[in-house]
Every structure is written in C-alpha cells, then in structure tokens.
C-alpha cells in the first residue's frame, strides 16, 4: 500500500504561537510551473493588530543584556543550519535551482551570524562621548526605536527576510513582518526556526497574505514606530508614506540584492535605532576641563 503524503499547513506566527489567520481565509500561490505551493493564510488587518500588540508586549527584548541577545541570534543561526535541507527544498519548489538555493540558504545562515556578532558591539561604535563647552559629561547612546513593521521583498524569500529582520532585532526592536506574498514558504518555516531558538515570543511576528491589504493597517497603526519597506512597488511605497505620517513613523526603503554577501552592515542596524544624548552635570576636577 502506498503511503499518503502528509502536507504541511503553513500558519502565521504571532506572539510565539502559530495561529491560523483570524479571518479563516487562505490563498494558493503557484510557482513558475503552475504548481501550487500550499494553502497559505491570507491574513487580515486584525492579524496585524494582534501581531503589533504581541510585538509591543515583547519589548522586554531590549532589556536583555546585549550579550544575551547575541547568544540568542547565534542560536537562530544554529537552528537554521540544522534545517538547511528543508529550506533548499522549499526554495526549489518556489522556482530556484539547487545551486542558487544552496547559496541563498548558506548566505542566510552567515548573515544571522553576522548580526549576532554585532549585538554587543554596535553600541560602542555608534555611541559617543561628546565635547561640550559647559560643565557636563555629555554622552550619546543608541536605543531601539520600538515596534518595527517590515515589508519583505517578493523574491529572495529567505535571505531577503533574514537581511531585513535580523538588523532590526539585533538593535533590540521587536517587529511585525509581512512575508513575500508570492513566495511565502520560507517565511513560515523560518518562524518555526525562531520558535525553537530561545527567541522570546513576540519579538518577531510573521504574517502571510496580500501586501495591498496588510500594508495600510500596519502603516496607519499608531503603535508602530518605524517601517522598513523592502519591496519595489511604487504604489505601496506611496500609500505607506502617507499613512505612516500620522504618527511620524520612521520610514525607510531598503531594496538591495540580498544575495550579495556585501549587502550587510552597521548602518542597517542604525535604521531602527534612536540616539539618546544625556547631559550629566560634573565639576571640573584637577586639570581636566569640560572639554571631555
């Protein structure tokens, strides 16, 4: 008797749980050969709302020590490495050839490690002691922006997502991610990696569905502090800018070729950091002036 194949249900990831969309809807994206990729959740604005409140509740992420955040990010890389075969298979189903799929997955793992390393280092590079002409010790330190919305590119479904999400959580932010609409498989499987890698629930929340529908509630949400747009649709970019203006969100557009190993740097972490400057009164002691 032949065995009945068990097909995977792709669900969304909110607050460390894998619910189905509250709307109960799904869609079936297809690859180039017109083969269905799976039944994927067609998330609604209420899923966006739930994801944002989960992300807000998880802002304790920023209170962890930088070193511990680095350890957890590194753990993500370990788990990702262990499931390489599954990601390669999904990328091939989505239309990649075996070689490019392998390159993409390896690069994704390396990129996670890259940002894991930055977790306890960007503060020294970006922080500063500032010279001022009064009796103050004046210093600047980077702090996370808060809850960040991330719109992933349509292609490069794994490495694109990793390249946009990792710098954001490296900086202590929490995020709500809208996955590639046409190639969503790796996003959901990546959520499973996150769920087994000590990352607290709610730090990364991943939704699948129609970008056109999800961008508006995300961009107009007053509790989202910044949005990173990684796609290439002018109409979406314009809508996002208008709606985000309501609470003066930081909006950045990052569309690069994420398969290029060079496209990773400190400045991407800085996209979702705020600089806090403190003026601390001091006395002039001995020969030291307030020049420092």
């Amino acid at each position: 008797m032949s065995r009945l194949e068990i097909l995977k249900t792709y669900k969304i990831y909110i607050g460390g749980q894998f619910p189905r969309t509250e709307s109960g809807r799904y869609y079936v994206p297809k690859n180039g050969q017109n083969e269905p990729l799976g039944n994927i959740c067609l998330s609604s604005r209420k899923d966006v709302r739930n994801a944002v409140s989960a992300a807000r509740k998880a802002t304790g992420w920023a209170e962890r020590t930088a070193f511990n955040r680095g350890q957890i990010l590194y753990r993500i890389a370990e788990m990702l490495e262990g499931r390489k075969a599954q990601f390669i298979e999904e990328l091939i189903l989505q239309g990649s050839n075996k070689k490019t799929a392998e390159i993409e997955v390896n690069l994704a793992v390396d990129r996670v490690v890259y940002y894991a390393g930055w977790c306890d280092k960007y503060q020294q590079i970006m922080g500063a002691v500032n010279p001022v002409s009064s009796s103050h010790f004046n210093f600047s330190v980077p702090e996370p922006t808060g809850v960040v919305g991330i719109v992933c590119p349509e292609n490069q479904s794994l490495v694109g997502l990793v390249s946009l999400v990792l710098p954001v959580i490296c900086g202590g932010n929490t995020c709500v991610v809208i996955a590639s609409e046409s190639l969503p498989l790796c996003a959901v499987t990546f959520a499973e990696v996150l769920n087994t890698s000590d990352l607290p629930g709610g730090v990364i929340n991943i939704l699948t569905g129609a970008k056109k529908e999800l961008i508006s509630p995300l961009a107009s949400h007053m509790d989202v502090n910044a949005i990173i747009y990684g796609d290439n649709d002018e109409e979406q970019w314009k809508t996002l800018g208008i709606l985000a203006a309501d609470n003066v969100k930081r909006v950045s557009r990052l569309s690069k070729d994420w398969t290029n190993p060079e496209n990773q740097d400190l400045y991407q972490i800085a996209e979702t950091l705020e600089i806090k400057t403190t003026w601390h009164p001091i006395e002039n002691i001995g020969g030291a002036s307030s020049g420092y």
Binding site: S220, H221, M222, D223, N247
Partner: peptide, 9 residues
Amino acid sequence: NGSYQSADY
C-alpha cells in the same frame, strides 16, 4: 479615526 491606536497617546 480608522487607525489602530497606541497607549502612548
């Protein structure tokens, strides 16, 4: 207003 709100306000 039509948009989801934040406790910050």
